[in-house]
Simulated assay, not measured.
Amino acid sequence: MRLPKLTGSVLSGLHCFLIAAEQMSFTRAAEILCLTQSAVSHKIKNLEDSLEVKLFIRQPRKLVLTEEGKRLQVVVAQNFGDIAHEIRDLKTLELSGDFNVAVPPTFAQSWLLPRLKRFIDKYPALRFHLRTRNELVDFQTESFDCAIYFGNGKYPGLYSEKLMGESMLPVCSHEYALAHELYENPEKLISCLLLHDAAPWARAGRNDEWQYWAQRYDVTLPEAGCTFDRADLSLQAAEQGIGVAMGRNSFIVEKLESGCLVTPFAMPVQSPLNYYIVCRREMAMSPRIKAFIDWLTVETEDMKDA
Score class of each variant (00 low, 15 high):
P4L: 10
P4F: 12
T7H: 03
S12D: 15
C16M: 04
F17V: 02
Q23H: 09
R28P: 02
E31A: 14
Q37S: 13
Q37I: 07
A39E: 09
V40W: 07
S41P: 00
H42P: 01
H42V: 11
H42L: 15
K43P: 00
N46A: 14
N46Q: 14
L47W: 06
L51K: 03
E52T: 08
V53K: 09
Q59F: 05
R61I: 02
K62R: 14
L63F: 04
L63V: 01
V64C: 03
T66G: 00
E68R: 10
E68C: 04
K70W: 00
Q73F: 14
A77K: 15
Q78I: 09
N79D: 12
N79H: 15
F80V: 06
F80D: 02
F80H: 03
H85L: 11
L90N: 08
T92P: 00
L93S: 07
G97N: 02
D98T: 10
V101E: 00
T106H: 03
Q109H: 13
Q109R: 15
L112S: 05
L112Q: 08
R115H: 11
K117T: 10
K117G: 03
R118G: 07
K122D: 04
Y123S: 04
L126Y: 01
R127M: 05
L130W: 05
R131N: 12
L136D: 12
D138P: 05
D138Q: 03
F139I: 11
T141D: 11
F144W: 01
D145H: 14
I148L: 12
Y149M: 01
N152A: 13
N152P: 02
P156N: 09
G157R: 01
G157I: 11
E161W: 11
M164T: 07
G165F: 04
V171Y: 03
V171P: 02
C172M: 03
A177L: 03
A179L: 09
E181C: 09
L182K: 02
L182V: 00
E184K: 12
N185A: 07
K188M: 13
S191G: 10
H196Q: 12
W201K: 11
G205H: 01
D208N: 10
E209A: 13
A214D: 02
Y217S: 02
L221P: 09
E223R: 12
G225R: 01
T227K: 15
D229S: 14
V244C: 06
N249M: 10
V253W: 09
E254D: 14
K255T: 07
L256E: 05
E257I: 11
G259Q: 10
F265R: 04
F265C: 06
A266W: 10
P268D: 04
Y276S: 10
I289C: 00
K290F: 04
I293D: 04
K304Q: 14
D305G: 05
